[in-house]
Amino acid sequence: MSSENHPLVSVIIPSYNHAQYLEESVSSVINSEYPSLEIIIVNDGSTDGTSTVAKKIVAESKVVQYLEQKNQGVETARNTGIKTSSGKYILPLDGDDLISKNYIKKAVEVLEKRPEVKVVYCQGVKFDEHGEKPWKLKPFSINALARDNMIFVSGIYRKADWEKIGGYAEDFKLGRADWEFWINMLKDGGEVVQLPFVGFYYRLTGGSNSLRKRTSNDEAKRKRIAYLNKKYPNFFERELNGPLRFQRTWSKPYNTLLKLLGKL
């Protein structure tokens, strides 16, 4: 398949201590059916053998670039990679996750034909050394996005849209930064398409599970909600009739009740 007439897709792979998995993740991209790719690995201050593995990958493939930075978090690492990228489209992929061969090709087909679409993603599964299990993602709507996230981080979008919103929020160190990013990108319009096949494989590791535990406690949740309410008050007013609440599902009815009682 020729790369002519296929817009460049930049796959940004932030990696923090992913030496064990990085080669497999990059291979899943290199094996893609899509012919016009650049892959940018961003080593976010790893303390394992990530640097050695990444340099080996670069030496073996002309489409892979390698950047290093001190440890600043995955949001900063993504922005670092995207800033240096040349692609029309961006695919963020963490250094331990995988994609299917047809994911990029099918996503770009949608984005090229439908300029009103801002984000294309697919179905996903979670996996570890014991096998795979289904990942039941909720259907997308902008109103549902105000209450919870249903688009994993590896959605494909235009670099121009990343530029318009100023990239990933580097001060959002509370977990679930992809949720904040999608709110920022989609709050003022734009359609979202989920492809009807499994194209994303989220690896469950000790690191991912411990991160989930650290960012799912009540204190982290309250801080995350406070951050989002402060940054996007108009969005939540429009979608939830007031601020996002700790019990997120009840945000709109609770806000509506408070307004009826004259307390909001």
Rank of each mutant, 00 (worst) to 15 (best):
E109F: 02
R78M: 00
V53Q: 12
E33M: 07
L37G: 03
F140E: 12
K101G: 02
W162Q: 07
L244K: 04
Y21Q: 05
V64R: 11
L91F: 09
Q123P: 02
L228W: 11
I82V: 10
T76G: 07
V108C: 07
K88Y: 06
A107N: 13
F197L: 08
V74H: 05
L91R: 11
M1E: 02
K221N: 13
E24H: 04
N79F: 11
Y254K: 11
E23I: 01
E4R: 11
R176P: 01
F197N: 04
E237R: 14
L228M: 15
K187M: 10
I57P: 02
N184V: 06
A19P: 03
H18E: 02
T47W: 06
G131R: 09
V26T: 07
Q72C: 14
I183Y: 06
V153A: 15
L240Q: 07
L260Y: 13
V108P: 03
R212F: 09
E60N: 15
L244E: 10
V64H: 09
V53H: 07
Y157W: 15
E68K: 14
I183S: 09
F181L: 09
A220L: 03
G167V: 03
N5D: 15
Y16M: 00
R78A: 00
L137I: 08
P14F: 00
G262F: 14
S86E: 12
W250N: 12
I40L: 09
G190N: 04
S208I: 03
Y201N: 05
L244V: 08
E23P: 05
L111A: 12
D97Y: 11
V108S: 11
G175E: 06
G81C: 00
A160T: 10
D128Q: 07
P233F: 13
T249D: 15
V9Q: 05
N71Q: 14
E4M: 07
Y202K: 14
Y232C: 07
R114C: 05
N79I: 04
F197R: 13
G124P: 01
I104W: 01
K213F: 04
L257Q: 08
P7D: 08
I156Y: 01
K223I: 03
F181G: 03
I151T: 07
L98D: 01
L67S: 01
S32K: 10
A77Q: 00
F235E: 09
V26N: 06
F235D: 06
I30Y: 02
E33N: 14
Y103P: 02
A107M: 10
Q247G: 00
V153W: 10
K105L: 15
L22R: 11
R158S: 05
K263N: 07
V63Q: 08
I41S: 07
F235I: 01
K164N: 02
V29H: 05
L98E: 00
A146H: 08
P115A: 13
L8H: 01
V108F: 03
